[in-house]
Simulated assay, not measured.
Amino acid sequence: MLNLLLLSSSSYQDTGYLTHAKTYIQDFLKECDSLNEEILFIPYAGVRRNNDEYEKKVKESLNQENIVSIHRYNHSKEAILKAKVILVGGGNTFMLLSKLYEYDLLDCLAQRVKEGACYIGWSAGSNIAGKSIKTTNDMPIIMPKSFNALNLFPHQINPHFISGKIQGHNGESREERLEEFLIANPQEKIYAIPEGSALRIKDNKVKIIGHNPVLKFEHPMKSTTLELNQEYPY
């Protein structure tokens, strides 16, 4: 049984760090009967802050004293395999996946979520829940062992999705970059999540929550709008 909450971003407009996500996370934990469980936090995507700083920021922002970073445990695998709620923060997706491979945690993390642990991620933490990180927006600052990710959600995810070209930007739009991926990988599907929105995944259905609809892209480049508060098979 899968229980995933995949947020596009840690912030929405000017609401502050994780402010918009508090209600989504609380509702998710209630649905999972895990409101009072310890939350295991994985901070490896945070390149510009150390593990202690990242843990402190998330605890304070969510007002959750029961968040404990994985770096405080002597045995990381054991911590994952005992966890009932796992929270994976954003930052750089390549660094996050690289660390999970380096510490040999990717398979046991996937195993634990498939066994029933609740999974919450945002940005990079959402990216790695998909099939691979090939549709991340992040700069490849480090080379992971593979681009293959947790594959809990068996499709591609593109967080922070912004449609169209930003004024003054002469490079490719997000749609054009995703079209390139689909030309190279025509069998894949991409779920493009605007900021302020999230995928709520339970078993084989995905529900769109937040402020904006989600777009599903397929080859040849065509999009399907997934409306807010609606459930879809995937």
Rank of each mutant, 00 (worst) to 15 (best):
S9H: 11
L178C: 04
N137K: 12
E38N: 12
E38P: 08
N158D: 10
F217L: 13
H71T: 15
F161M: 07
T225K: 13
G171Q: 12
I190K: 02
E60M: 02
D14Y: 07
P144M: 09
E180V: 13
H160I: 12
G91Y: 04
K189L: 12
P43F: 05
G89P: 07
A129P: 06
V214W: 03
Y119R: 03
P186D: 08
G130Q: 06
E231T: 13
L29W: 03
E172W: 05
F41L: 15
P213H: 11
I157H: 09
D27L: 00
N51P: 00
I133H: 09
A149Q: 06
N151T: 02
A45C: 02
H20E: 13
G130K: 04
N170T: 15
L109I: 03
K59G: 08
K99M: 14
E176P: 09
M139A: 09
D104I: 01
N50R: 07
R112C: 03
G16E: 05
S197T: 03
S61H: 01
E180N: 14
V113K: 00
Y101D: 07
I208C: 10
M1D: 08
Y234I: 14
P159G: 12
L215N: 10
K205A: 11
C32I: 01
H219S: 15
E175Y: 05
G46D: 02
E195C: 05
S11V: 08
L87A: 07
S8H: 02
K30G: 01
A149S: 15
F161L: 05
L29E: 03
K189A: 12
K22F: 02
E188F: 10
K207T: 15
Q13A: 14
R49Q: 14
Q64F: 12
N170C: 12
I39V: 15
N74T: 13
E176Y: 09
A124Q: 09
L150D: 04
L5D: 05
K114H: 12
R49L: 14
V113E: 01
E175N: 07
N74C: 02
N185S: 14
G46N: 11
L100P: 10
H169W: 14
